[in-house]
Nucleic acid binder design. Structure first.
Length: 554
RNA sequence: GCGCCUGUAGCUCAGCUGGAUAGAGCAGCGGACUUCUAAUCCGCAGGUCGUACGUUCGAGUCGUACCAGGCGUACCA
């Protein structure tokens, strides 16, 4: 939309220059914005103020000149006026909006689909929680943001794949196996000491009970080495299965589940270490193996193989990220919890050492969720075992409200998730406000059907009958949808969609209150129904991006 | 100490590349259902945009310093 205005202004500038009114050398950047107050016009530009210095003229004079050309028969522009210190306010013609609305209607549910992503191949990795316990609320935020982002970016024309990285190797797996084994023995009345560093959550007992249900006490006699192997495997599979279920319930799915252990199968961990070693980025010190990340963005070198010969988490992460880049993506996007932010420079450093384009790897940090219940903060450590699981919250608040709660905030601001409030508000939660609009529209259509309004070939309705100010406010907002998708996708800011939908729907609710859709006037009724049908598509599409349902009845 | 994020209405937060009188929801107060869903609408009230300098015709937005909160700063994952 703004492009049209931009072109008109560019034309006016060229005319002004040819006429000797302006003397700029290069065509300036023309920024089009929407005035806060609708009464001022549909679009505005501060161009005259920007030009004032180089032209050595009063901005008002420049604005007058440009407006002169704009008012002189420029296409689609009804009027252009100078205001304040030199703003140019532009009002577009009715036909301008109606013809664009027509296009949107013809696109149906596809409206909003963009190609700004240029089909770039994107790999989006998110959640990737360790399989040592159930997902908690913090993971839920990552899951909602990641999944919504993948939908959004697809809508914006990116070719997105999603991935969950499973850390199924290392010490934590031993701790998990040992914790379960001990709980198993306890449940079978054997006296054992529970270690301080074990996982203390109740879910460990559930896993132990599951083993008993399946195999009885047959593991009691095993050598500890064998028992550990069994319990490690069993617990991991059990937890992973739970994570998959929780995510599915939360409407989050992944294209691929990538196991850390698979990096050993094809020796890629050793290969990437050797690659770095050959290039001289690896050295030995104090019996450990280090990588020279400080040569790049990191403030210190990092250990990749510990004194005991064990690998660090970072070590396999290097191999994993090399693997990702080698798969040929234009963008590797990782969603990490904000507590991992110190990790970003070292990862960037390694990829840089490997000669990969800096632009290819991006990390989006998702800030913490603090969960409150009864005004009290709930602790969220897996180890202490006192945390609120995602599944519990979803069961209490519902998928739609939980997802929306996570998505309506900018992901780089801390989120207060007050359970009591979320539940209490469930009647007046913003998500219901949006869903209600969708249901309302569906209801209007049901009424229209009952009243026998002819609805076959609704697309042929004469939208030029739409004349109310509220209708045009609605049309303008509908038409802004595509730009909103593009902007949100490019800036990776999913919350913009949530805010857009609230604003959009608020205009509708207000319109609905003031004007009846189904009336005696059949042609006008059909025109309004067509407008609402278009609006319904946008709401459903936007909610779809957020992974929130669009109900036909409430 | 250093690094990252945050600081806007009583509460939770928007504010796009600097632009016109700083917005929304909740909470509070007052109105609107014989008419397509009142999970809605309309109105009122509520602000030294953490503080101080600076850049600019113009700063919530940019820069510097400081203050406050969160997180990180492992041969943990």
């Amino acid at each position: 939309m703004k492009e049209t205005v931009k072109n008109q202004i560019a034309k006016a500038l060229t005319q002004a220059k040819a006429n000797g009114d302006l003397s700029y050398q290069e065509m300036p950047d023309i920024v089009i914005e929407e005035p806060k107050d609708e009464k001022l016009g549909d679009f505005a530009t501060t161009l005259a103020m920007q030009l004032a210095r180089s032209e050595k003229k009063n901005p008002k004079v420049i604005a007058e000149t440009i407006c002169g050309f704009l008012n002189d028969g420029a296409d689609s522009i009804e009027s252009a006026e100078v205001a304040g210190p030199g703003f140019i306010n532009i009002k577009m013609s009715k036909d301008f909006f109606l013809s664009r609305l027509k296009e949107a209607i013809l696109q149906g549910r596809e409206f909003g689909q963009s190609d700004v992503g240029q089909k770039k191949k994107v790999l989006l990795e998110f959640v990737s929680a360790n399989p040592t316990g159930p997902l908690h609320v913090g993971h839920g935020r990552g899951a909602a943001v990641g999944h919504a982002l993948s939908c959004l970016m697809k809508k914006a024309g990116f070719d997105v794949s999603t991935e969950y990285y499973i850390n199924d190797v290392g010490n934590q797996m031993n701790t998990l196996g040992r914790s379960t084994w001990i709980r198993y023995q306890e449940l079978l009345k054997k006296k054992v000491e529970f270690p301080d560093d074990g996982y203390k959550g109740e879910y460990i007992k559930d896993i132990a009970q599951a083993v008993i249900d399946a195999d009885g006490s047959s593991h009691l006699d095993k050598q500890s080495e064998d028992a550990l192997t069994f319990f490690r495997q069993f617990s991991k599979d059990f937890i992973l299965e739970g994570i998959r279920d929780d995510l599915k319930e939360f409407r989050v799915e992944f294209d691929r589940w990538f196991k850390e252990s698979s990096l050993d199968d094809d020796d890629s961990v050793n290969k990437s270490i050797n690659w770095l070693r050959d290039k001289g980025f690896v050295y030995e010190k104090d019996g450990a193996t280090w990588v020279k990340t400080s040569q790049f963005k990191d403030d210190a070198d990092r250990v990749i193989i510990k004194q005991g010969g064990e690998r660090t988490y970072f070590c396999s992460d290097i191999a994993y990220h090399k693997n990702k880049v080698d798969r040929g993506y234009d963008l590797i996007l990782d969603l990490w919890g904000a507590d991992h932010h110190g990790y970003v420079p070292r990862m960037q450093s390694v990829l840089q050492a490997m000669n990969y384009d800096e632009e290819v790897f991006k990390v989006l940090l998702v800030q913490f969720v603090s969960l409150k219940r009864g005004g009290q903060k709930v602790s969220m450590s897996t180890r202490s075992g006192e945390f609120e699981t995602l599944a519990d919250v979803v069961a209490e608040v519902g998928v739609d409200a939980t997802r929306f709660f996570f998505l309506m905030r900018s992901s780089d601001s801390h989120l207060d998730f007050d359970l009591d409030l979320a539940k209490k508000e469930s009647q007046e939660n913003p998500v219901y406000y949006i869903q209600y609009a969708h249901a309302r529209i569906c209801s209007v259509f049901r009424t229209a059907e009952e009243q026998k309004v002819p609805m076959t070939d609704l697309a042929s309705a004469d939208i030029s009958l739409l004349n109310e100010a509220e209708e045009f406010a609605l049309i303008k907002k509908i038409l802004a949808y595509k730009a909103c998708i593009e902007k949100s996708a490019l800036s990776l800011e999913i919350h913009r969609i949530a805010f857009y939908l609230q604003e959009l729907v608020s205009i509708f609710h207000s319109y609905y209150k003031q004007h009846r859709v189904v009336t005696e006037n059949q042609e006008l009724t059909r025109a309004r129904l067509l407008l609402l049908d278009c609006l319904r598509n946008v709401i459903a599409s936007g909610l779809g991006v957020l992974g929130v349902s669009a109900p036909e009845k409430m």
